[in-house]
């Protein structure tokens, strides 16, 4: 009798995918930070991981990049099993950590050259790639300044540049726009778009819905260490179905209004944010009159009412009952 045993180091049907993540689990003491995460990224695809603070994004990425050993589950990069001691698959990844990871005493060019060398670049190739990357991240004119003199946005851009240097098969960006001014943020998003157009595969985590919508071919919505839903933007929004969002701003007895609205048959969800109520509602255009009425009767004085079509934020709200940002 012949039995098939699947060997651990062999790729379990990775096909041509650059990244295959299977059932990743990681605990920190009692806390299960990552709880069975699985997904795949095809070549040239930009894959987004959208989730709030503490969802387990960085922990997942640490395991994907071989910085952290999973308690269970596996990561394959282009068919090779990833782990802390696996040098082969690491060479295929470009990691841009959430926290800045640059030497403040060294210049932008020195930082790039150092990490380039670690990626096996050298000589003329390293020099020309350094210049190219400095150009991409718009720091050519500051190449020789110590990075401790850089603005926050400039440091962020260098942080990204280091990940690009060796033209990785998969670029991993962990919340690259956090704490960045709008201008730098836009230039970062444009660079990522340009790279994606050139055919680089990208794994992009964020808690900004707009970024995920703008950049990503497919998006995983994560919360509490789990993928709650996955798909293209359209597929995800279909989950909410015909639900729209109505926002009520005002004063008075907001809590009472929330309670009253929850009992209305058209209202799916009510979320209270200070002086705003966010409702997920079926057929908003017809329901809105009854909602305004009910809120007024409960003692809320309305200042503003807004109806919007669902977006990823509404999907998140629908799936988790929480807002994406707190």
């Amino acid at each position: 009798m012949v039995t098939m045993t699947q060997h651990d180091t062999e790729s379990p049907a990775t096909g041509s995918d650059v990244l295959v993540v299977q059932d990743l689990v990681r605990n920190f003491g009692e806390l299960r930070a990552v709880d069975g995460v699985s997904f795949r990224i095809a070549p040239g695809e930009t894959y987004g991981v959208l989730g709030p603070n503490g969802a387990g994004k960085t922990t997942s990425i640490s395991m994907i990049a071989g910085l952290l050993r999973p308690d269970s589950g596996s990561v394959h990069v282009a068919g090779q099993l990833m782990g802390p001691r696996q040098v082969g698959p690491k060479a295929l990844l470009g990691l841009v950590p959430q926290e800045l990871a640059i030497y403040p005493e060294l210049s932008a060019a020195e930082n790039l050259r150092f990490f380039g060398r670690l990626q096996g670049l050298g000589g003329a190739e390293l020099r020309s790639r350094t210049d190219e990357v400095l150009d991409i991240i718009g720091l050519s004119d500051r190449a020789k300044s110590a990075t401790k003199e850089f603005s926050g946005g400039m440091k962020r851009r260098l942080n990204i540049g280091i990940g690009l240097l060796h033209r990785p098969a998969l670029l991993i960006l962990d919340e690259p726009t956090v704490g960045v001014d709008p201008q730098s943020r836009n230039s970062i998003l444009e660079s990522v778009e340009a790279l994606a157009t050139e055919g680089m595969s990208v794994l992009y985590t964020t808690h900004y819905m707009e970024e995920a919508e703008r950049l990503c071919d497919r998006i995983a919505i994560v919360d509490s260490g789990r993928i709650q839903a996955e798909g293209t933007r359209t597929e995800l929004i279909r989950i909410v179905g015909e639900l729209d969002e109505i926002r009520l701003d005002g004063s008075g007895d907001i809590a009472a209004a929330a309670g009253a609205l929850e009992r209305l048959p058209a209202v799916e969800h009510v979320l209270t944010e200070a002086r705003t109520l966010r409702l997920t509602v079926r057929e908003a255009p017809t329901a809105v009159a009854g909602i305004v009425n009910a809120a007024g009767q409960a003692g809320m004085e309305l200042a503003d009412v807004e109806i919007s079509r669902p977006d990823l934020e509404s999907v998140f709200l629908h799936l988790t009952g929480k807002a994406l940002r707190d």
């Binding site: 082969g88 800045l100 990871a101 640059i102």
Partner: peptide, 11 residues
């Protein structure tokens, strides 16, 4: 500085 992570993430 986080560069340690980056070094270990490199091959």
């Amino acid at each position: 500085y986080g560069v340690q992570r980056r070094i270990v993430a490199a091959p």
